[in-house]
Simulated assay, not measured.
Amino acid sequence: MCAAAVALLVVGCTAQPTTGGTSPGAAASRTSAFNATDTAWILLMIPMAERARQLTDLAPSRSADPAVATLASKAGSTLREDLRRLRAALKLSGVPDTRPHEGHNMPGMVGLDTLDKAAAAKGRPFDRILTDALRAHFTQSRMLCAGEQNQGRADEATGLAAAIAKSTSRQISGLDTLRAARPATPGNHKTTVKPDGPHRTATTR
Rank of each mutant, 00 (worst) to 15 (best):
Q16L: 12
P107V: 12
A118P: 03
D65Y: 01
T31F: 00
T191V: 13
D65W: 04
T203E: 13
L178F: 10
G12K: 05
T37D: 02
S23I: 01
A40L: 04
P66W: 06
R53C: 11
A146D: 08
L160V: 05
L79I: 05
C145M: 04
P60Y: 07
H137M: 08
I129D: 03
A202L: 13
T31H: 09
L8W: 03
L83N: 08
M109K: 09
P195N: 07
T22E: 14
S141K: 02
L175P: 08
R87F: 08
G20F: 09
L175R: 12
L115Y: 12
H137N: 14
I164G: 02
S77F: 07
R62T: 07
P60L: 06
T192C: 11
A3H: 12
G76H: 06
T191M: 10
K91M: 10
E102D: 14
T185G: 01
V6K: 04
C2V: 02
N150K: 01
D97L: 09
R128A: 10
A202F: 11
M45P: 01
T203S: 14
K74M: 06
G152C: 03
H101D: 09
R85I: 02
R84V: 04
M109T: 08
T31C: 14
A49F: 00
D127G: 07
P47W: 05
A162F: 08
P17V: 07
L71P: 04
L55G: 05
T56F: 06
L112N: 15
A154L: 01
A162P: 04
D97P: 04
G12P: 01
D65V: 03
L112Q: 15
L58R: 01
L58Y: 10
A5Q: 00
R85M: 08
A154V: 03
P60D: 06
V10S: 01
R87P: 03
K190E: 11
S23E: 08
P183G: 11
L160A: 05
H137T: 13
R153F: 00
E148M: 06
L92Q: 14
I46C: 06
V110C: 04
Q140I: 08
R62C: 06
A67E: 11
A36M: 05
T131I: 11
A121H: 05
K74N: 12
E102Q: 15
T204S: 11
S29I: 05
R80K: 07
G197Y: 07
G21T: 12
A181Q: 14
L9K: 08
Q16M: 06
A133D: 02
N188T: 11
T19I: 13
R51I: 00
K190N: 11
D97W: 06
R99T: 09
A120W: 03
S169A: 15
P183F: 11
R200W: 07
R80E: 12
T168H: 14
L44T: 07
T201Y: 05
T191R: 09
R142V: 00
